[in-house]
Nucleic acid binder design. Structure first.
Lengths: 193, 193, 193, 193
DNA sequence: AATGAATGAGCGTTCATTCAT
DNA sequence: CATGAATGAACGCTCATTCAT
């Protein structure tokens, strides 16, 4: 029995990331992926059932990767403010460390129809530590508003938008710039300023 | 010379909006559009050079529509804070009044490759009044940061994210909810709180 | 508005018949058909919704063609025996006159899954005159057995088998040979010999 | 040297029969067969050179199986008429006893292109006893016609058609029904009635 | 002997686009 | 201006076949 060639599988994933970065997730086609990854057109089907399955599995892989260390980051914060900053900043750092994966994540979030609702649900479950932290600070009365949806938008949307803007315009993104945005987002959301 | 049938052209645009809302911008095909609009498959080519041209022209139409009254809204604000609120809130109101067009706009912003870079540039030019206002308040030293990109993200990204979330999950969006988000965004961005 | 080019549509149908004759109905593919008919690969989709639709519509066309004149043939028979002979012989004649279409019909009958059950049902409805005649002679007590299914098999199966055998082995088929088979089949099925 | 696992080979054959019964011979794919037989996708290639070889070898196996006892059946007939009946009825019995194999046989006969011409020829050679009997009765002047092809069609086609009809419509087939058809076929073919 | 990862040709189908009418 | 028949490239996917293990 032949073992599955992990190099090939990785090349397929890499192709997905790079094409998504360069042409958007709408630009993904199995033909392009196979050519880019230098594998046969049938090879992706060895690893994935179909396109939706592929995009979904890779999405969850990416979620997993980017959530790695999140719990530890939060725990490392001494004050609640620190915890919150670490939490949000974690994803900015991950973007810096894993830009391809982060861009892919953003694209899937913007086009959730490319994966199943179940995959989105599973992905959200991985963000549990964020929810827990929000809940905790919320109960401590630290936020200017006690609504998760709004809080999430105020804290995450700004730096994600800046990220995307840079990707689209092909300009470099410095971590310190993201840090600034995040610090401002956090200040705007905490009561005692 | 026959005049182009504006009713047909409008039906084509409406078809684009409705299909985009229901299936995302990736679901747009000329065949679907023609059937939805009850015109022949060749008709859209009477009005537009090709698909990119169509999406781009409609994008600019929408931009134009949604910017209508922006200058007046800003001018109507008595204090600088009022002006800023009116400015951002204008787009929230437009979303409420023109949801189809707003959704289309969001989709194009998330998938900017469907139009040309030039179209995006032209679209941005229409937001001139926003830039002017930002510049003005900036020079008055009212912002916690003097960087247009960051300011834009802090003020617009949160409520846009909330909007999109509601559209995706098919939940209703009340204008007052958006107002809350926007007020918080603005407070977070102004110096003297 | 362009009119549909009937020549092209006919060439597509002819391609279906010829490929079916040469390679069996399993050998049919849209690629082969288009190449054979010298039309673009997308052209068959102008005429037919999909493969099943195409095979079904052509099947009904063929049924229609081959049933043409059946009623008249039966009516032309003076005695009941004559009517019966004319009825069965009609299809032998049609095979001789329209061999491609007849072969196609046989292949669909042998592989009924290539069309929908509804199409088969509609096709059977066209054979009404045969059923009527059988019923009539049956009530007159002329048959050695009063079971339509069995009668049909005894009268039609033999000459169809001979036909198919000749097609498969690429040997010519004379109408007089079929006539012999049919006369024997009929004698075997009538009471008073 | 390892022996080939006959259990596996049998499972492959059974898979071929069952898939053919359920989906027709066109539904056969090596992937399906392997999954159905619970063997690896490469395993059938251990036993067979390729698909044509597999279908052909299995066809000959089936022919062999279904011809088993034919000679004895014929010999057991006391009169020539009995011999003829036993000969034809033998295959009806085999259909009853080995329906999967018989259906497979019918499907290959209807789609002879799935095997080579040589295989068909070899298969026909196995029916030698039938030919011999026909020859014998022919020389005794018992038939209404002295043409093997025609005789074969008159005797075998009707009950095969009835069989197939029942399989397609998923209705049960009683041996006594086939017997009726066969008795009528034989009466129609013998001179002295 | 048996496995199953990998291949690449070919499948049915869609779709942006063209152009004769 | 408007139509819709026709095109052909590209799509997602299947499948017979090969071969390293």
């Amino acid at each position: 029995m032949r073992k599955i060639d992990e190099g090939k599988k990785e090349r397929v994933k890499l192709a997905v990331f790079e094409i998504t970065r360069d042409e958007g997730i709408a630009g993904l086609s199995f033909g392009k992926i196979a050519k880019h990854a230098n594998v046969s057109s049938g090879t992706p089907y060895v690893y994935y059932k179909d396109k939706t399955d592929m995009l979904g599995k890779i999405y969850l892989d990416v979620k997993d990767l980017l959530d790695t260390g999140l719990r530890a980051s939060i725990a490392a914060g001494k004050t609640p403010e620190d915890k919150l900053f670490n939490c949000v900043y974690h994803f900015a750092q991950q973007f810096h460390e894993h830009p391809l994966e982060s861009i892919y994540l953003d694209e899937v979030r913007d086009n959730p129809k490319v994966v199943t609702a179940e995959v989105i649900r599973q992905g959200n479950r991985l963000a549990q530590p964020v929810d827990n932290l929000f809940q905790e600070l919320n109960e401590a009365g630290m936020f200017v508003i006690n609504n998760q949806e709004t809080l999430y938008a105020l804290l995450f949307a700004p730096f994600i938008m800046v990220q995307k803007q840079r990707v689209v315009t092909d300009q470099p993104m410095m971590l310190s710039e993201l840090e600034t945005v995040i610090r401002l987002s956090i200040q705007g959301v905490l009561k005692n300023r």
